[in-house]
């Protein structure tokens, strides 16, 4: 099949970008979306043009590298699917597809469809860990994890940090991402000692990175490839109230993080 593409091209953060039209031919329905872009890029390289830059790694929906908007929908808008898992059989011969990078102040475009998501890393660095002694692995039965807590933590830990939640949010808010990271640790026994300080730190980091403010549209959960529910945002909000009114909070020790 033949596909018409309109792709955002931008050579670096400082320069302005614009949409450019392309045409790819000879696409087969069993190709993935990124393979379709590989075909385009081989074509562009052969013609001496700069290939379209996009992030990818695992190409099986588990690493969180890939992601851009396809016709206004993050990851193409299919339930629980990253753009690398998007198959070309969902499209028709002659379809026109517009590809646009995530847009948020916190996610500056690095090149074409690649954005800088280190803001997410800094939110995690602010408290997305537990302090534990290193050494040999602890005895597995020394801390028992209730079934329900384990399930909740697993659901939250499924977040791959792709940034689709921020991209799809009308407010460019990072509440779903931060809530997933907090729910993951705050629902486990191992996360309890530093729960309150972790919550305060990560919520503060989220604001420092200039993400927007949630108004409960639910667009994040609709495009999340890991189907993280907005229920976790409610958990985070409650944890924040708990954290602010706690008399004593166990410290979370964080090394300073810097951006060049």
């Amino acid at each position: 099949m033949d596909i018409k593409l309109k792709i955002w091209r931008q050579s670096n953060t400082a320069s302005p970008g614009q949409f450019k039209d392309y045409q790819v031919t000879g696409i087969t329905p069993d190709m993935s979306f990124l393979e379709m872009l590989d075909v385009l890029n081989e074509d562009l390289t052969a013609r001496g043009e700069a290939p379209v830059a996009f992030e990818h790694d695992c190409r099986e929906g588990i690493c969180g590298s890939c992601g851009f908007l396809v016709n206004g929908l993050a990851h193409g808008g299919r339930h629980g699917t990253t753009v690398c898992q998007l198959s070309m059989r969902f499209f028709k011969d002659g379809d026109s597809l517009a590809l646009e990078p995530w847009r948020a102040k916190a996610f500056p475009v690095l090149r074409d469809l690649i954005v800088d998501r280190s803001a997410f890393d800094r939110i995690i660095q602010a408290g997305g860990f537990i302090s534990a002694n290193t050494g040999s692995a602890p005895e597995a039965n020394s801390i028992l994890v209730p079934k329900a807590s384990a399930e909740t933590a697993f659901d939250a830990a499924a977040c791959i940090g792709c940034g689709a939640c921020v991209a799809a949010c009308p407010n460019a808010s990072a509440m779903l991402f931060t809530a997933a990271k907090l729910t993951h640790l705050n629902s486990l026994p191992q996360g309890q000692p530093q729960r309150d300080q972790r919550t305060l730190n990560m919520v503060a980091a989220m604001s420092r990175e200039l993400f927007g403010s949630c108004t409960n549209h639910g667009e994040c959960e609709a495009v999340c490839p890991k189907q993280i529910p907005i229920e976790f945002i409610g958990n985070m909000n409650r944890d924040l109230v708990r954290a602010t009114f706690r008399r004593r909070r166990e410290a979370i020790v964080v090394a300073g993080t810097q951006r060049a």
């Binding site: 908007l69 929908l73 460019a172 808010s173 200039l210 993400f211 549209h217 667009e219």
Partner: peptide
């Protein structure tokens, strides 16, 4: 609202809503 408006200085050409 101001926080949110400042969070996306460059808007999308097109962004579709699914759930709101």
């Amino acid at each position: 609202t101001r926080v949110s408006w400042q969070a996306r200085p460059i808007g999308y050409r097109e962004r579709k809503d699914l759930e709101t």
